[in-house]
């Protein structure tokens, strides 16, 4: 069995990559992917610890997170498509009308 510390380490790395990506990258699609990484880091924790304790609550939670992530991506892509149609770009630097 993999020790829990290593699971936590891997999930923390995944989460950090996700956060860094959201903060650094300027492409809306890549930001969306990085958000997915953050969610999957959480899923890894949930599943590993549910398995460790032998209960199913965490696994159910992980399934639900996956479903909601899919819904979130659907809406996000719709918004990105609308942005692309309007502005011909998916770079978030290109949108700066609202300020102050």
């Amino acid at each position: 069995m993999v020790p829990m510390n290593q699971v936590l380490l891997v999930s923390f790395l995944l989460f950090s990559i996700g956060v860094a990506g959201v903060l650094i990258r300027r492409n809306a699609l890549i930001i969306l992917m990085c958000v997915e990484l953050m969610l999957n880091a959480a899923n890894l924790n949930l599943i590993a610890f549910a398995r460790h304790s032998g209960t199913v609550a965490g696994q159910a939670f992980a399934l639900l997170v996956m479903g909601l992530a899919a819904a979130e991506v659907a809406i996000g892509l719709a918004l990105v498509v609308a942005l692309y149609r309007k502005k011909d770009t998916v770079q978030v630097d290109g949108i700066n009308l609202l300020k102050g």
Binding site: I31, M38, L39, L46, V65, E72
Partner: peptide, 19 residues
């Protein structure tokens, strides 16, 4: 984008608490 980011933070926090 900010809402999705925040729900990522939230659910990772929840998974840590759960763990």
């Amino acid at each position: 984008l900010l809402g999705a980011f925040s729900s990522g933070l939230l659910v990772y926090g929840m998974s840590l608490i759960f763990a």
